[in-house]
């Protein structure tokens, strides 16, 4: 078999490597987050399903599923890029990706897409297991896909920034525990913001994660706290800002090329 030179092969190989990397430890990277989400679902549905309905007549457990799915997509997209980059930096094998003729745009695209793939695997896993417990409507699948992709891309970019910036795992876990986790938990995963006092509703509107989850949920129920177009605008703007920031760090070789 003759070797062949392929266009964008560097990007494709890096994407393949990043997917293979998480797939080789899929119990940890896919199985565990699915289990965590399902445990949330079991516990919250057991406690609240008979007491709470949302959007008029949507049972609480059904309402909860899209939020948990999106939360899993977001957290895993962040975890994929951030952990891969910091591991490669600390062990030094990042050099294998920096020596070849891969442009910084290809580098960005490969890492972000791989993170979206992991998010999609986990999200699909949560949906499949949830379907054993509830019947989930799908009103506008295009919105589901758009928000899953954009949300995954935002957190993947954010993960790249954290992975590039952090010099040790401790700094990365600070990102995860003091920023990503609170923003996700307070984004309306477990409740509609209309159930909150006015002040907290206003605060929720400042949280970009709220728009990702609210828009994603619209795709299932055709109802949301704010218009999906508003959410799309906010989420797209967030992605553009984070993508520009990440690309500029990569272009400058910030903490990667001394």
């Amino acid at each position: 078999m003759k070797p062949e030179t392929v266009r964008f092969a560097g990007f494709r190989t890096l994407l393949y490597k990043e997917v293979l990397r998480f797939w080789k430890v899929s119990f940890q990277t896919v199985g565990a987050p699915v289990l965590t989400a399902v445990l949330y679902l079991l516990i919250f549905s057991h406690v609240l399903d008979r007491h709470v309905t949302v959007y008029g007549d949507v049972p609480y457990t059904v309402f909860l599923v899209p939020g948990l799915v999106m939360m899993s997509v977001l957290q895993n997209a962040f975890a994929n890029t951030s952990s891969s980059l910091i591991q490669s930096k600390i062990t030094g094998n990042i050099v294998f990706m920096l020596l070849p003729p891969i442009s910084y745009r290809e580098f960005f695209a490969a890492y972000v897409l791989a993170a979206i793939v992991r998010g999609a695997f986990v999200g699909t896993g949560v949906i499949l297991v949830s379907l054993l417990m509830v019947s989930l409507p799908v009103v506008a699948p295009a919105w589901i896909i758009v928000f899953a992709l954009l949300g995954g891309a935002i957190l993947a970019s954010f993960g790249m920034i954290a992975g590039i910036w952090a010099d040790k795992f401790d700094q990365l876990s600070a990102f995860q525990n003091f920023l990503i986790m609170p923003l996700t938990m307070l984004s309306g995963v477990f409740y509609s913001i209309h159930s909150l006092p006015p002040v907290w509703q206003t605060v929720s509107h400042l949280n970009p994660f709220f728009y990702m989850i609210d828009g994603f949920r619209y795709g299932f129920f055709g109802q949301s706290d704010v218009s999906p177009w508003v959410s799309l605008g906010v989420v797209s703007a967030c992605f553009v800002v984070l993508a520009i920031l990440t690309l500029s760090m990569l272009a400058r070789g910030y903490k990667l090329r001394a």
């Binding site: 003759k2 062949e4 490597k17 294998f96």
Partner: peptide, 17 residues
């Protein structure tokens, strides 16, 4: 796998020989 990946980063596939 490491060698195939490295080969791919440089744009070369089917480089097993």
């Amino acid at each position: 796998e490491a060698l195939r990946l490295q080969s791919g980063y440089f744009g070369i596939r089917r480089n097993d020989t």
